[in-house]
């Protein structure tokens, strides 16, 4: 299977130029690329990120790890993350899992973000802690 260079949209980051092998819907990355792009590493106990490890059923190990490469599509699958690919433009996008989104929202802690104003100056929601904030959307369209 030939190696191609892909872009990966993962969370709020775009990681360009990952060397990947694509087999059908499966996306195989080298261990160091998987870690650099997603923070996940493969260990004997399964896929790990920080203190969290997700075990991989031994009978299905070949779906996740093979020849020094790891299958990001299979990892997204066990994490409940949607994965969408545009093979023509060699771009993959891994989104947030519904359960994770719900957990964040239902904590009722307002999720923080930073975005630019028209002058390019960044504003974070958390800068306004201590005030009553009306977070309100609009659009030009």
């Amino acid at each position: 299977m030939a190696e191609i260079s892909i872009n990966l949209i993962y969370g709020d980051r775009v990681v360009p130029g990952l060397a990947a092998e694509v087999r059908g819907a499966q996306l195989w990355l080298r261990g160091e690329d998987l870690e650099r792009a997603t923070g996940w590493t493969f260990k004997p106990e399964g896929f790990c990120k920080g203190a969290v490890c997700i075990p991989v059923p031994p009978a299905r190990a070949a779906e996740f790890a093979h020849g020094g490469r790891y299958n990001l599509a299979a990892l997204a699958g066990i994490l409940g993350q949607p994965i969408v690919a545009d093979e023509e433009h060699r771009t993959w996008c891994v989104g947030e899992a519904a359960a994770e989104r719900a957990r964040t929202l239902r904590s009722l802690e307002a999720p923080d973000f930073s975005l630019p104003d028209v002058a390019g100056r960044m504003h974070s929601l958390s800068e306004y802690r201590g005030k009553k904030v009306l977070l309100v959307s609009w659009a030009s369209w």
Binding site: D12, A110, L115, R129, V133, L135, S137, W138, A139
Partner: peptide, 21 residues
């Protein structure tokens, strides 16, 4: 991204956030 974080599907949509966030 704010639409995604706060589950907004339209404009104008608002969320009220108190002093403690």
């Amino acid at each position: 991204i704010v639409a995604e974080l706060y589950d907004m599907v339209n404009v104008p949509t608002a969320v009220w956030i108190d002093e403690r966030g």
